[in-house]
Design a protein around this nucleic acid. Sequence first.
DNA 1: GGATGTGAATGTCTTCACAGCT
DNA 2: AGCTGTGAAGACATTCACATCC
Lengths: 209, 209
Amino acid sequence: MVKRVADSTVRRLSLYLSFLEELSGSGAATVSSDVLARLGGTTSAQVRKDLSFFGSFGKRGLGYAVPELIESLRDILGLRREWKVCIVGAGKIGVALARYPGFAEKGFHVVAVYDADPKKIGTQWDSLLVRDVATLSSDTNREHYDIAVIAVPAEAAQNVADILVEAGVKAIMNFAPSQISVPPDVVVRTVNMALEFEGLSYALAHRTK
Amino acid sequence: MVKRVADSTVRRLSLYLSFLEELSGSGAATVSSDVLARLGGTTSAQVRKDLSFFGSFGKRGLGYAVPELIESLRDILGLRREWKVCIVGAGKIGVALARYPGFAEKGFHVVAVYDADPKKIGTQWDSLLVRDVATLSSDTNREHYDIAVIAVPAEAAQNVADILVEAGVKAIMNFAPSQISVPPDVVVRTVNMALEFEGLSYALAHRTK
DNA sequence: GGATGTGAATGTCTTCACAGCT
DNA sequence: AGCTGTGAAGACATTCACATCC
């Protein structure tokens, strides 16, 4: 049951979960792979295959029970527990993230924010105090953050990553516009806005005829 | 020369370009596929294959001339012209984007910002005035934005997309945490932070013992 | 009858390995 | 000798199609 599952599959499972939560709100008791497929812009076979990596959740002839599937997906995605998150870099992206509605709801709890700028250190950020990045290493050793968000300039990203890894962080969300290298047991997701926009630029430049 | 090229390839080309620009700054005249591969966390064969979709840019035995390859990649990615960008939704993400350093440098020019909140409409945002989203349709018809950024709440995203498409926008960057559907000749990239974090959550929950 | 679950077929992307320039 | 460019092989992901069960 714990094979190698593609990133794209995990991503779609997240999507299905969000649809299911909406459907649940509208009081739907059951849903077919076909409906989920339409919502997610994919095919019913894809939906069934995605789920099949983790078990059999449906009933033939009926579809999937919405509340049960929600629970199963939360389980699969690791969303039935809280994750301690710290944000390094108190810039615009950091702010946007910490205040993203539904972020805490999903179990991602921002418990600390760091910056290197003396003007920002010590300022209050909703319920959080911006801490000095100099304390990041010792804090991380003590607090055991599950996930760290890197939202610092490109030049500083690798250094911050090294500190986090050294202190035992196993998951990093990287918003810096640069690659960071980490040991194989640490998982990194890099969100690079520039790349996304250049993808659009490419598509526009090459649009058929 | 204009085959179907994978998204992942385009993404890597963007990455290579950013490395090349750095290398160029350090005065490197030439670079091998192997070096680019290391920087990008891939293989030299992958780098050569990616480039080969668009032509032959290297010299056997020597590698690639840095300035020439930069120009070629900019050409391929459509970065030798300016793109007119509008941002719909003057929230945190919108602000972060409009002020992202290097965004304008790359040719993405934010020329308008919209919001539906009367408190925000009319406020000054650096050199931009926040406009009423009610004028989005007529403005778009007049201004012909190349790329529109949707940074509004999930419920409003599809409606905004419809207005943009109707007015002729062909590329949309969607930051709303919901899927939007558009005709096939319109390209959409959705960046869904929740999905990214749930990917990390999944990885943590399933990390090999 | 209706919708799942899944092997098999197909399609797509990556890696290999080597011929061919410089 | 060194490094690119590229068919061919291999790995991976998606789609098909149908037996299976409610």
